[in-house]
Amino acid sequence: MMQQAKTLTNRAKLMPRKPLTFSERIYLPAIFKGMGITLSHLFRKKATISYPDKVRPMSKVFRGLHVLKRDERGAERCTACGLCALACPAEAITMTAAERKPHEKQLYREEKYAAVYEINMLRCIFCGLCEEACPKAAIFLQNDVMAPPSFEREDFIYGKDRLVEPFQKN
């Protein structure tokens, strides 16, 4: 007979252990039941998505890698106002403004443009506040591209070469 331990509260309830039935004791029905369960899993749909070959469908509002948009003529929309950098809670955005030269009119939409525009993807938390802050609809977070991995820290500082949308003629 087991000594009953002193209980801390008076709510403890003693649960008598029922003796095992014969079918439980011979163990085999339980084994076959378990085998049935595992066998049913054999034909079940797999949870895995073989990632590089297949990509999980992303939400429409997914916030991935940034892109700096161009306007309909192909000129960069960003005017280097710095509101995105100000809005950024992670302080991931830095930029240097420059004045547009007369012959650069088709390159930049406004008179002021970002000569350097860098986002540190290691700092960025992809909150999308830059997108909300932008008055010129210049920066967006894509919903189908993610920042790729790299072994070097420097690779995560994205300059204009990787952020600006490629020029399309249409």
Binding site: L42, K46, T48
Partner: peptide
């Protein structure tokens, strides 16, 4: 492979 299938995975592929 079977271990993976029984656990709803794909296994080595």
């Amino acid at each position: 492979k079977l271990a993976a299938f029984l656990q709803d995975r794909l296994g080595p592929n």
